[in-house]
Every structure is written in structure tokens, then in C-alpha cells.
Computed example of a mutant assay.
Amino acid sequence: MAFSKPDSGTKARRTAGTRLQPELRPGRGATANPTGRFEQAFREDFDDGWGTPAANIADEPIDDDAVLVRRPMLTPARTSVSREAARTLITYNTSPDIGFDRSINPYRGCEHGCIYCFARPNHAYVGLSPGLDFETKLFAKSGAVAALEQDLSRPTYMPRTVALGTATDPYQPIEREHRLTRGVLEVLARFHHPVGIVTKSSLVLRDRDILSAMAADGLVKVAISLTTLDAELARRMEPRAPHPQKRLAAIRGLSEAGIPVMVIMAPIIPSINDHEIEAVLEAARKAGAIEANYVLLRLPHELDGLVSDWFAEHYPGRRNHVFSLLGQARGGRSYDCQWGTRMIGEGPYADLIRLRFRLAKTRLDYAQQPFRQRVDLFRRPEKPGDQLNLL
């Protein structure tokens, strides 16, 4: 392994990364593991000829224009979970184009491995790669329940709906063991605090007991991310997320328990799943979803190179066409972070998607206005030694 200082070509090389051999990433979404954008050096693996059996060496290009290099075949990446101390759990934002000003993420990184996940670049903040590291090197926020109780107990705290699972899926596979999401929901239920959950996992059905009780008071809404009905496409895009039919079953199970459900088609990817808009909305409506929304593919920071590399492996003939359509909706760039348009884009292609989505929602009788959770029921549970209220 060699360490190099940045040079004029570093940014492109970091973004594209060195494509990893498929046997090193079974069941993973990322095809590469580029160095994070904040690192002062990037790494390249190379074989120095000492003790590496010829059978364990493979020829592989660094990128589409580079010569072949000799790379040793390493051990397949496994999921690891580290503890991250949480002194506070609620994160605030001032973004004018999203419907919440606070969020909770019990985990950092996500094993679902969705190649398109806009949160991948966040892993660079802890010195890790937004590529394979994002889905294999995970962090569980220890003390999350105590930290949330402390946040909500502050006398100055003013309740508003908190979004649970904005940068990582709160019901990813490690939740089965760590149960941080359930702990968070138990706290929110005790405080009668409104919450909106975003997930693509059927594991959310495990917590129907808490969610149905909160729904009876108008405190919860669950958004299920359903990007496609095509199982093969889902396996390639989001390899460790539940099957599309499992997500439809989750919508049905939550709806039958009296829990309001929104379906989110996020992201819509030109030439990949945009033809499924009407079919996805119809299937979700039949399962019980009452609201629907979408997001056009977003490619901030390293995600541009990661998604491009994924296309080169899975759909090489479509990559240029997809990025051309994205450019038409993003002012000639693959991504535009401008408020108000970053989620849906603008221009003829973006307008067409918007129109199709609106017409399908109307035809299928989706709600035109979002369900708003109640905030007036919030109360801090009394603790031993608390002074009694006069009123």
C-alpha cells in the first residue's frame, strides 16, 4: 500500500477510486472505496512481489483510462460496528426545502448499501470512505436513549416533529441486535413527542405496538422508501435492503395497524426506474399508503464518482444517457445543491417527472396535503423529586 500527497489529479482519482474485485464485496452496493475528500493523502494498493502468490493477483484498471495494475486479492469486506458516544441525539437544520428542522440518526453508516444514498459523503467526516466503508464500518450511538431523554427534558426545549432516519436507516440489520431505534421510540412515546420515520426495512413492523399507540394520538407517520418493483434492480442498487414485496408488506402491516404511511420513490433515476413511477404508486396505494413523494437522484461530493463507477459495472451502456438527463435537470451539472430544486430538479425532464407523479397521485386518490403530527400533547414525564405543578 502506498500513501501519496494530493496533486492536480487527486480529486478525480479519489472520486473514482480503484474498483474492487467483486469477490471482495459480496452483497455490497459500492464498487469502490475512494479516499474521503478531507484526507491529506490517498491510498493505492499495489503488489511489491514479496510473498503474494500469483494465483491471488488480479489485473485491474484504476479507472477507465488507466493502464492495468497488479492488485493482491484481499479478504472480503465484513461488517463491523463501533460504539460512538452520544452526548446529544437531536440534530437541527435550517434547510428551507425540507419539512422538518430536527432529526435523529441512531447509527452512522448503513449496511443496506444503497449505491445512490446521498448520506454516503458523511462518512468522510470521520476519516472513512463514502464507498465500501459506508456500508461495512458502522457506528452505533451508545447512550442514545439517555441522551434523548436529556435533550427532551431541557426546560427550553420546544417540541416539533422529529425525523427519525434521515442519514441512515434506523431499521438497518444491526438494529435487530442493538435496538437503539426501539429505545428512541420508547422515549418519544413517553414524552408524547411527534415523530416521522423514514425506512426501507420491514423490521419496522416489530415496533407496531409502540407506533400504533402513538398513531392513536396522531403522533407518528412512517415513510417507506420503495424505489422499484424489480427485484433484480433492487438487488443491484440496494443489495442488503429488504425485497420490494417485503416493503409492500410493511406498508400493508402498518396501515392495518392504523399507522399513517407515506411511500417515497427515492431516488428516481433517469432511464433506470423512472418508467416505474405509476406502477410503484399503484402497488403502494393498494397496500395502504395514503401519501406519496419522490426525490430525483442527488449526487453530492463523492457520490458522483461512486454512482458513475456503479453504472460502468452494471449498466455501462446507459451511463452517459443517465448523466445527460440528470444534467438537463441540474443546470448542466450532475448535481445542483440549490434550495428548492435540489430534490426534484428543473427543466423539461424534471417537469415531466413532476407531472407524471402528480397525475398518478390524483388518479390513485392519494392525499394532496401531508398528514401533520400533533405537537400539543408533548409533556415531560414526572420524575421522583420533581416539584408539582400548580395548575
Rank of each mutant, 00 (worst) to 15 (best):
G9Q: 15
A12R: 14
A12L: 13
R28V: 08
P34Y: 03
E39G: 13
D47L: 05
I57C: 10
A58M: 06
D59H: 12
D63G: 15
R71C: 03
A77W: 15
T79W: 10
S82M: 07
A86R: 09
D97C: 12
G99I: 01
D101K: 14
R102G: 13
P106E: 10
R108I: 06
P121R: 08
P130H: 04
G131H: 01
A144R: 07
V145Q: 08
A147D: 09
D151Y: 01
S153C: 05
P170Y: 00
E177N: 07
L180A: 03
V184G: 00
L185E: 04
E186A: 07
L188I: 06
L188D: 05
L188R: 05
R190M: 01
S201L: 06
S201A: 09
S201C: 05
L203H: 09
L205S: 06
R208C: 14
M214C: 02
M214K: 07
L219R: 07
T227N: 05
L229S: 05
R235P: 06
P239W: 04
P244R: 07
E256M: 12
P260G: 03
I264N: 13
A284F: 02
K286A: 14
A289H: 02
I290L: 08
L297K: 01
D304I: 02
W310V: 06
W310Y: 09
H314S: 11
H314G: 04
P316L: 01
R318V: 09
R319K: 14
N320S: 15
F323I: 01
F323W: 07
L325G: 02
Q328F: 10
A329Y: 06
G332F: 02
C337K: 15
W339K: 09
M343F: 15
A350N: 04
L352Y: 10
D365K: 14
Y366T: 01
R374W: 12
R379E: 13
R380Q: 07
P381Y: 04
G385W: 03
D386L: 05
Q387H: 13
N389E: 15
L390H: 11
L391K: 09
